[in-house]
Each structure stands twice: as C-alpha cells, then as structure tokens.
Write a protein that binds this DNA or RNA. Sequence first.
RNA 1: UGGGGCAUGGUGCAAUGGCAGCACACCAGACUUUGGAUCUGUCUAUCUUGGUUCGAAUCCAGGUGCCCCAGCCA
Length: 559
Amino acid sequence: MTNEPVTVPSNFIVEAVEEDLKSGRFDHVQTRFPPEPNGYLHIGHAKALCIDFGIAETFGGVCNLRFDDTNPVKEETEYVDAIKEDIQWLGFKWGQELYASDYFDQLYDFAIELIKKGKAYVDDLTADQIREYRGTLTEPGKDSPWRNRSVEENLALFEKMRSGEFAEGACVLRARIDMGSSNINMRDPTMYRIIKTPHHRTGSKWCIYPMYDFAHGQSDSGEGVTHSLCDLAYEDHRPLYNWFLDELGLFKTRQIEFARLNVTYTIMSKRFLRQLVTDKFVSGWDDPRMPTLGAMRRRGYPAQAVRNFIDQVGVAKNENLIDVGLLEFNVRDLLNKSARRVLAVLNPVKVVITNYPEGQVEQLEAINNPEDPSAGTRTLPFSREIYIEQDDFREVPPPKYFRLTPGREVRLRYGYIIKCQDVVKDPVTGEVTEIHCTYDPETRGGYAPDGRKVQGTIHWVSASHAVNAEVRMYDRLFTVENPKKVDEDKTYLDYVNPDSLKVLSDCKLEPSLLNVTMGEQFQFERKGFFCADQDSKPGKPVFNLTVTLRDSWAKIENK
RNA sequence: UGGGGCAUGGUGCAAUGGCAGCACACCAGACUUUGGAUCUGUCUAUCUUGGUUCGAAUCCAGGUGCCCCAGCCA
C-alpha cells in the first residue's frame, strides 16, 4: 500500500507529554507550528511539522498554525501563502490560523503591566552601548544608567515610543531582570524596538514591535498551547519564556526542545538558501536541487515519502547529519509501487536493424508496472531504426559488461533479441554514430524459443515514433557532506557542485509520453523516476529527474 | 576561563538496572525480459577513568570531545 501510514515511534517528547497527562499538569494537548513568514519551508521544517502535528494527533489534540510575524522588515504575505501551501501538501490540517500580530494590542498591555510592576524600563542606550553593557560570556554585564527610571517616566516614554515620537534606534523597552545572570538571555533582554517599516498585516498601525522572546510565550499561552515544541537553540531562552509567563501570571505552557534536522550535501540556513537564489546558483526557491518543500514537490518527491523519511529519522537531542540516501530510499520505495514504467532514451545513439523490413511497424505489448498488475499494459511501436542509450553499447566492453558490443546478442525490452554486426563512425571524431544489428525474428517479445540465455536487456525507442523531450538531470547541490563545516579560508559557496544540473535536450521518449500532465510521475526503465515539469509545452515535454534507480552496474564498473 | 545541551556500528534512532535491537548504507549470494524490485545471509557500536551493584549503555564521581548562547533576528 502506497499510503499506508508508518507508525510513529515513541520518543522523549511523547514520553514527556504522557507524563504531563498522567501527573495532571495538563488535561489535554495542544501544539502549534510557528513559522516566521520570511522565506520558504524546507525539509528541516518538515521535521518540526511532523513533531508539532504528530504530538497533537497522537494525544487527540489540535495543532494551530501561527505565523511569528514580529519583524515587518523581513516578512511578506507571499511567504504566508507559500507556507500554507507547503503544509497542505504534506497533508497536515491545522486548527486555527493565527498570527503573532493578532496579539499586538494585548502584548502592548502586557508591557505596560510589567512597567507598572517595575519589571520593564525604557533604555536610551544605543545598540552598541547595550552590547557593551551586556558583558561577555565570561564577564557579567552592568546596569544601564536608565535602568532605574520611575514607573511614570517609563510609562510616558513607552507611550511616546508607541506614538512614533522617537526615531528608530532611539530607545527600546527592556525587561528588568539581572545584568549579572550567567544566562545572557536574562541580562535585561529587549522587549520592544522601534521599526517604521509597514507590517504585512497591520500596516502602519504600529511603529514598535515585540521581540520574539516577548511575543512567543504569551502567544502560546494565550491560545492554550500546552506544549511548545521547538529547536534546541531556544533551550537558553526557556528561563526567559517562563519568566514572562510567571510575571504576567499567565497559563504556563511547557516548552520542550529537540535537535533540528541536518541532511548531507545540503544546507538549511534560510540566509544561505536565499543567497543561492539571489546569486543565481539555482533558478529559484523551487529549483529541484533545493532542500525546500516546494523544490521537492516540483522534483516529484511524494509528500508521503518526505513524511516517512522524517518518521525514520526519529526525534532526539543529539546533533545529527542524516544521509540524504535515506530520503532517496523513501522516494524510490513509494514511486516503485506507483510509477508507470516507460521506455525513454536519454543519450541516444541510432541502431539500424539491417534485416528488418523497411517501412514495417509492429506493435509490441509492454507491462505498465510489474509491481501493480492492475496498471495493465500498453503498446510500443517497433521499426527498423531505433534509438538506444549510448551507455548500452561499448565497442570494447569492460569486464562483466552485459550490454551491446560487437558480435554479442542483447535483448530489446519487450522487443527482439538483436546482435551487433557493425558500427559506423564519424570519420573525423571517431565517435560511433550508428550501430548495425541483425534481429532474430523468432524472438518477438524478447523470448528465445530455443531457451538460449541473453544476459543483457536494454531499453529502446523507435526512431520515427520517438517524442523529443528535454530531461533535467540533478545531482547533489554540494560536493561535501556538510557544507556548514568547511576549511577556514572557504565558505559554503566554494563547495557548490558545478555539475548539479545537466540538461539533456535531445531525449527520445516512447510515443505515450507525447502529452503528459504537470507533475505526472514515471519510471524511465533502467534510469530512474522522472516527473513532468511545469515548463512542459504541448508536444515538447520537459522532465525532472526525481531520483535515479539504484545502479549496481555503476558499482561494479567503478571497482 | 560563564551558562545551557549532547556523546551507542558508516549514518540515524531504540534498549528506561537483566541476551545491545531496528532502518538506511555497505559486503556476499539467490532470483530476474529493468544490472530495478524481491528474497537470503554477513560485517561493524555503548567517548574515557574510577565507583555502586549478583548484574551498568542505563545510576554516581572525575576527565575528554562536540554543539548552542554576547541581535534593537527568529
């Protein structure tokens, strides 16, 4: 069954939630997925998605979608729409669609509450000064000279911040905690800063915006989130998260952190992905080589394969670097069961069957999917001139080579057994331009009535019936497993794979592929899985390589 | 030299004081009209030192290594 759900294995988060239910800390479970709409979702987000939605589902709860839109400089509605599309593609259904900006009024009131409690103050220090006063990892910070302003003065100043009387950077609102804390996040963190860029949802209503730390916990709490699941990076922020909830006397959400996903030969950093796009290393966020969900969709990865992959990766707190081969395994595993088989020659060389009658065409029956008998059969035209793969002929065969070579027989899949008699070469380059073969008329369909063994079976396409197509072959985006870890004098850009895209523009496909619909998936026999790209035009399809088939010949040959 | 977190085969995840298991990868073989798929088999691991215990991957103590934190980003 293609869409049989994989049972989600237990993990430390599931256990913690079970414990919370058993102890009575919570009597139900609610989660949220909180992306910032400043870019596209990638495979790393798929892990967070599976955890956030998975925990909710496991315990009969709801997972909300909440956009963390507290910084108008970076955020756009375009990203909101794309994120929703990607989540839906993966098959997740959120409860409410919410925004941190929904809470701006309430957050403002919370800030005033803290000012009145003497727990927040307006600081006139510049950004540079704040950094200086913050101290270092090993030295404590020191108090700002503005730290002890009166409540009245702070209230008045904060109101002026809100009403736009100050320029960006003139001052900020800070929580009054402990400049000597060993946790830097507790050294009077910024709660509000002045930003005069319009917000994608609230426009120019506000010119002060809450920081992540002042918005996230209260947003979670306000919507009744019991378990706020996030990246390990926020572990150091948990004391602050709890501090705000405690000081404000709000419902106490529990934050639990897990290790983010890393995958070999790619990067997850939004900043770096954006650079690959702007510097034209790729054609866009949905370039099939990118680790974004949009790219995977375009490349033909089934959503279920992505989810199965995430389930197999597991959830823990160890830093990890997952072999991209595991993702590819899941893609093949699903596509193998569902994709229709077709014959397609990617790098064609012409074969003339010299003893086959000129002008004759036969229709040969071919199986659509050996893994799925209900997929039925189709018909393939066969004629005197065909194309085969350049790789399937060697004038001088290496050891263990089963394919076509002078004097040897090979089977044409669903066709005839042919024997190579002669080759025609380009007199200048010496390149083989045409291969002359004879066929055995007794072997129609590929069966030898005398029972003789033929080691190789190769795919082919009748020359006069072939559909011309463009096929885009993709390889890993980077040449090293972990582009984040590079030599001192280099950057990840030095490891971009220059051969990650090869466009084959003279491919020959069987006639059934003349009209395909975008996204339709096929197995090109012996080559890999491919899907029709959005760039396809009537009569001139374009295909993306989704993933190659396993290639044990390549292994033998490279030994 | 502050604080937080993490160490199990090549890569991940389990084992919750009692035979270190699963997946992927690898290797070998069977089968095969896809050198695909399928099937079978094999190899490889508890960071280190000490302690507690009949028994430790698990508990305790020390050591080592790696990751994160000094945004008016999230």
